[in-house]
Amino acid sequence: MDVEMTLRVDGARYRLVVDTRTTLLDALRERLGITSPKKGCDHGQCGACTVLLDGRRATTCLALAVAHDDAEIITANGLAAGEELHPVARAFLDHDGFQCGYCTPGQICSAVGMLDEVEAGWPSHVSEELAGGVELDDEEIRERMSGNLCRCGAYANIVAAIREVAR
């Protein structure tokens, strides 16, 4: 069944027709040609498709597009302000926080969303005190970034990049 819908992606508004079966990820990649979010597993098991969905980091491979009519999506490409890279993206470059680059847009969106979650005081699995505030040490960064797999093994540099931005 085809459905007409709207998506707002990286500041632009798109009318598009999708199959009800089309995921948000495929709507972006195959219908709109927006390929910054990547398909690594298509089952919520790798995080490569992470974007900011209505302000929060979210995977897009298990979201049906039709259920997100009029959603606001920011991809890693949309994080940049013109020529100026987002500080997290800049830090990934500075710290070589990637190699093949395929998981990278998802990592960066995830990091941006994660920093907001820390700002809001959300605890994590490794937080010492669930009821208290959060100090974003390396262990916290690692845990909070664990929904983004990287097969090249850039984790150590990803942590360094995020640590620098958080400081």
Binding site: G113, P123, S124, L130, A131, G147, N148
Partner: peptide
Amino acid sequence: PMLAAALLAGASGQLRNV
């Protein structure tokens, strides 16, 4: 707290958000 801890032990940040 056990409920918060259980939730935080599940899935990933981006999955828990939805």
